[in-house]
Amino acid sequence: MGKSLQVIENLSPGRNLDAYVQAVSAIPVLSVEEERSLAERLFYENDLEAARQLVMAHLRFVVHVAKTYAGYGLPLGDLVQEGNVGLMKAVKRFDPSVGVRLVSFAVHWIKAEMHEFILRNWRIVKVATTKAQRKLFFNLRSKKKGLSWMNDDEVNAIARDLDVDPHVVREMEGRMAASDTAFDAPVGDDDDKAYTAPAYSLEDHSADPAQQLENADWEQDSQRRLVQAMEHLDERSRDILAQRWLREEKATLHDLAAKYSVSAERIRQLEKSAMKKIKSAMLTA
């Protein structure tokens, strides 16, 4: 197996999937005795080399599982990579004393990682957030008899099989049939088409003169309160706050510690105390 392991470590399913699949297919399948021996070395002795061999020997199974999710339109290489993460989690948690093969234990972890990846990337807007929605998402395609919208009998039958309400089935069918729409206008669109983008339907409150005046007054009042609050501080505290918060190039605690010949922790304490005084003074100003 050694040569095969060296080959596979130089490959990635995201870069060259065909070569990766060929390489993992060449790794020999472990016998029951070999698997148990490696699992015991990992479980009882924390043997990382045993863990690596267990992972490598089951990479072909991850590819097999990933192919069953090809219908979601996501890159197979990405699904394989996510499944490999699940496989590594399974190997880490595998207890050889339970008496089952690793592949039976790992399938849950592999599918879980792939499910999360699909739900994150299949649509810009999440199509499944609750447990019932996730269950529907991964079963609805296989349950549907055709590509057209389902009738009431089909909806009710699927709802019974999956133990969910019929309206949840209808909602998920609509989500899966919907397509993504860009919020902003696509780059290169002409002016006539650009203004049909959803972003242009938002109301712009920034042009309201009353709102602009209110914002300006609030900023002036805040600045006045800050100046008055700073006057209540001693010269050292004012300097610390100014150099830590009011300058483009902020001074570090160690810079100020060297300047005032104290520790960085003392500067932090002075800064914290000054901030509390500033907040209190601004509230009462």
Rank of each mutant, 00 (worst) to 15 (best):
M1R: 02
M1D: 00
S4K: 06
N10T: 07
G14H: 04
N16M: 11
N16G: 13
V24H: 05
S25I: 04
A26D: 15
P28Y: 05
P28H: 07
L30Y: 01
R36S: 06
R36D: 02
S37P: 01
A39T: 06
A39W: 07
L42C: 06
A51V: 09
M56P: 00
A57I: 01
R60I: 05
V62Q: 04
A66N: 14
G71E: 14
Y72G: 09
Q81D: 13
E82V: 08
G86W: 02
G86N: 09
K92T: 10
K92Y: 10
S97P: 01
L102G: 01
A106I: 01
V107R: 15
H108K: 14
W109Q: 10
K111F: 12
E113W: 06
M114L: 15
H115L: 12
E116N: 13
E116A: 13
N121C: 02
I124N: 12
K126V: 11
K126C: 12
A128V: 12
L136W: 05
F138T: 07
S142W: 00
S142V: 07
K144G: 10
M150C: 12
D152F: 09
V155M: 00
A157T: 12
I158V: 14
D161Q: 08
V164Q: 10
P166K: 12
P166R: 12
V168H: 04
E171K: 15
G174T: 09
F183C: 02
F183G: 02
A185P: 08
A194I: 00
T196D: 12
A197M: 08
A199E: 12
A199C: 14
S201I: 03
E203H: 03
D204L: 00
A207T: 14
N215W: 08
D217M: 04
D217F: 00
E219S: 10
S222W: 09
Q228I: 01
A229R: 00
H232W: 08
D239C: 06
A242R: 15
Q243F: 07
R244L: 08
R244V: 05
W245R: 06
L246E: 03
E248Q: 04
H254S: 14
H254I: 11
L256S: 03
A258P: 05
A258S: 15
K259D: 13
Y260D: 05
Y260G: 02
S263W: 08
E265I: 13
R268A: 14
L270K: 00
K272V: 12
K272G: 11
K272C: 10
M275V: 06
K277I: 13
I278H: 08
S280C: 05
L283Y: 02
L283E: 15
A285G: 09
